[in-house]
Design a binder for these strands. Structure first.
Length: 476
DNA sequence: TTTTGAGTTGTTCGA
DNA sequence: GTCGAACAACTCAAA
């Protein structure tokens, strides 16, 4: 049989059930479609485009080594996929499932159109350990709190082992676009110039990262993951985002790593669980990036848009070292440490009282791991408008967090060269650093807002929301 | 149906 | 310096 394999967020040869099935059935044509036309599909952010370029480059190589070839096409899936299937004389179209609202709609319509045209269509579970529709509460609803969700997942059937990589693929090639023509890479300026020293997009890079993590960083993960100055996190997020690695592979690799303490293993698995939970939420709330999960937040009194404050946050010029180090790490590397993400998000949403969507969009554009589910779910979690969200009174203090989780200032120094000469603890509060008469003052901004009053302003705004005070209404 | 216990990640204040 | 309480009820999940 001749099968068209449509790859999307599953750019890997190992543990790829759609590929394995297609290869087992006969000849395979592999296509990646750049679809910027189907309705409702969120355009990739800049950093994700950079990653995609290199991931596709890598995939083309590994696929060629296995006997296949990667066909690049561009257009609306509803026309491009049936068109290519016709062109190749394919009898079947296979893909791995995706879970976003618009994506599901595209896939469902395509499935029925292809079947009507007499083709065999099959979709596979590849990117989530637990299908969102399979996880139901006792009353048939979907889970809204992480802990019971994850408990139910762990009590469900054990995730399958990874699917073996097909041996020699009988590949079918066809004319397609040149990758360069898609212009996924930034130019003028090339803000991603430092990315390639840090990241290796593609399946081999993902495998290497996983092996390194299990060998080294997974020890003391539970505690170490909180310190941004350490290399204690897995940094697998962008690989997972593009499906260069599957959660099934992670699951199984942990099984085979007895050197990791139970505490660290449980902690890391639960981070995989949060990814599952976010997709579970997005599946049931496809507009998670646009609308408050808790609709009572629609009445929340965000500050009127302040371009200057938003820009200071984006550029890492708030005057709070941990916030600024995080935002510059994001800009320079396309990634930010998890704890620092919470601190910068809390600062934007609570201290600046800027709508979480502005932060979510910036992360979407600048993160190489920008994930359609995790990004909005976690922003809403910080804002308090999300599922199982942080209580409104939880306002991170960037100075306290800095002293607690980067006590020696190692993380701060690596992204704030203008403060590199300051010792701890004053590096956490540079405005307290006395400048001697013969010294040039620090080239570092004064704090954008005062922490105490801005925190109180946020608490007041949340209290008004709770008490149902409508913004702008006349006081009674 | 009703009840009960629990809920990722924090900060501040006062004893 | 350390520690517990307050912050605010509310929703969710399950018994």
């Amino acid at each position: 049989m001749k099968t068209l394999l449509w790859l999307r967020d599953d750019l890997r040869l190992q543990d790829n059930p759609a590929l394995a099935a297609a290869a087992a059935a006969g000849e395979v044509a592999v296509v990646y479609l750049l679809d910027e036309e189907s309705a409702g599909i969120r355009p990739l952010g800049g950093a994700a485009r950079w990653w995609l370029h290199h991931s596709l480059e890598s995939l083309a190589t590994t696929l060629a080594e296995a006997g296949g070839s990667l066909i690049l096409r561009r257009g609306r899936a509803a026309e491009a996929i049936p068109g290519l299937a016709r062109e190749l004389g394919a009898e079947a179209v296979f893909w791995n499932r995706r879970y976003g609202g618009a994506e599901r709609q595209v896939d469902a319509q395509l499935k029925s159109a292809l079947r009507t045209a007499g083709l065999q269509v099959a979709s596979f579970q590849a990117n989530l350990l637990f299908e969102p529709w399979a996880m139901q509460t006792g009353t048939g609803g979907h889970y809204k709190v992480f802990t019971p969700f994850w408990r139910a997942c762990r009590e469900a059937a054990e995730p399958r082992p990874p699917v073996a990589e097909p041996g020699r693929i009988r590949g079918i090639s066809a004319a397609g676009d040149e990758l360069a023509a898609w212009q996924l890479l930034p130019r003028n300026p090339d803000w991603a110039s430092e990315f390639s020293g840090i990241w290796t997009p593609g399946e081999p890079g993902a495998q290497r990262r996983l092996a390194e993590f299990l060998d080294r960083n997974a020890q003391a993960y539970a505690v170490g993951r909180d310190e941004p100055g350490l290399e204690a996190t897995s940094r697998l997020s962008p690989h997972l985002r593009f499906g260069e690695l599957s959660p099934f592979q992670i699951w199984s690799a942990l099984q085979g790593s007895p050197g990791i303490a139970a505490e660290d293993e449980r902690s890391f698995r639960s981070e995989v669980g949060w990814r599952e939970f976010c997709w579970h939420l997005l599946y049931h709330h496809p507009d998670l990036a646009d609308r408050n999960y808790r609709s009572d937040f629609d009445a929340f009194a965000w500050q009127p848009a302040s371009d200057a404050e938003l820009a200071a946050w984006q550029q890492g010029n708030t005057g709070y070292p941990l916030v600024d180090a995080g935002m510059r790490q994001l800009w320079q590397t396309g990634w930010m440490h998890n704890r620092v993400r919470m601190v910068v998000a809390s600062f934007l949403v609570k201290n600046l009282l800027i709508d979480w969507r502005a932060g979510e969009q910036w992360f979407w554009d600048t993160l190489v791991d920008a994930d359609a589910a995790s990004n909005p779910a976690n922003w809403q979690w910080v804002a308090g408008s999300g599922a199982d969200a942080a209580p409104y009174f939880r306002v991170f203090n960037p100075v306290t967090q800095s002293k607690k989780f980067d006590a020696d200032g190692k993380y701060l120094r690596s992204f704030l060269p203008e403060l590199a000469g300051l010792p701890a603890p004053v590096i956490h509060e540079p405005w307290k650093h006395p400048t001697a008469l013969d010294e040039t003052p620090l080239d570092y901004p004064e704090p954008l807002v005062e922490l105490g009053p801005s925190r109180q302003r946020a608490l007041d705004a949340y209290a008004r929301l709770r008490d149902g005070v409508v913004p702008g209404a006349a006081p009674s």
